[in-house]
């Protein structure tokens, strides 16, 4: 085990992936608690598909992928939030519409372009070596912003997650905070997507929160537990990925499944 860790730390590409991964896991887990409790889990999934579409199109057109993906995913996040709140098209249908639409556009863009060597597989399922030095810098900055916002607005995020109508009635700027959460989620997804793959990134949002809710009973303890679970499952997943030469995203998801099973069992025993 220590051998694996020393190996990871002596390979710059892996160290970069580890840094980005830990920061993304942390952000995703914190936002995930609110998203899961607000019944918005699928928004994360929808956004990652939009991210895939944006990345694919950007690569084909030879533009910097992050520069395209971040604004597009943010726009999609606002759109999804609007659609699910005003209810002309029901939220779940809207998400399915947008996510499959973006996926379709992305795949078309890649297959119609000649001479561009794009590895769709790495976009869909993630790849450790795709994390560049500039990705690391951007990730650190964005992650710090997400963490700061989350801590600073924690009490408001709780109030809005628990009871939107009460928060609104007592003068809370509910739609502004909802947009903030959507914005932070969009950013987190784009950063994490290269590493985890667009098919698997939303697991970072959903699993830690669901695990923690099996066992813990207050919002604060669920939030802290999610952050811890998320970072640990990421590190363990990455070590497994390295040891067995398995894809990183899939390894992390499998570790999360195991963690969920564990939390589920503990929850059953504790809450008897």
């Amino acid at each position: 085990m220590t051998e694996i860790l020393t190996d990871i730390f002596s390979t710059p590409v892996l160290v970069r992936a580890l840094i980005v991964g830990i920061l993304v896991s942390l952000c995703a887990a914190l936002l995930g608690v609110s998203l899961v409790l607000k019944r918005f889990s699928m928004i994360g999934d929808g956004l990652s598909h939009v991210g895939f579409g944006a990345l694919a199109v950007a690569t084909v057109m030879n533009i910097a992928p992050m520069a395209v993906a971040i604004p597009v995913v943010i726009a999609a996040a606002f759109l999804l939030l609007r659609l699910s709140s005003n209810g002309k098209i029901k939220g779940d249908a809207a998400i399915a519409l947008i996510s499959t639409g973006a996926l379709g556009i992305g795949v078309m863009a890649v297959s119609l372009s000649d001479g561009v060597n794009v590895d769709i597989n790495s976009y869909l399922f993630g790849s450790i070596i795709s994390v560049s030095r500039s990705d690391v810098v951007i990730s650190i900055i964005l992650a710090l912003i997400v963490l700061f916002m989350f801590v600073f607005f924690y009490t408001k995020i709780f109030a809005i997650t628990f009871d939107e109508s009460f928060a609104k009635a007592t003068g809370g700027a509910v739609s502004a905070y909802n947009m903030m959460i959507a914005l932070l989620t969009a950013i987190t997804i784009v950063i994490g997507m290269r590493l985890m793959g667009s098919m698997l990134i939303s697991s970072l949002i959903i699993f830690p929160a669901l695990c923690s809710m099996r066992v813990f009973k207050s919002f604060l303890s669920v939030t802290i537990s999610s952050a811890v679970v998320s970072v640990i499952t990421f590190i363990v997943g990455m070590m497994i990925s390295y040891a067995f030469d398995a894809p990183c995203g899939a390894s992390i998801v499998c570790v999360n499944i195991a963690a969920f099973a564990g939390f589920f069992a503990v929850g059953k025993i504790v809450n008897k």
């Binding site: 607000k38 628990f162 009460f166 919002f219 303890s221």
Partner: peptide, 21 residues
């Protein structure tokens, strides 16, 4: 709301959120 019925929050956390305004 139905979501609230299964919400993980302590009683104190819920009560004090009334002070936010």
């Amino acid at each position: 709301t139905s979501a609230q019925k299964s919400f993980p929050a302590s009683v104190y956390e819920v009560v004090i959120s009334g002070c936010l305004n």
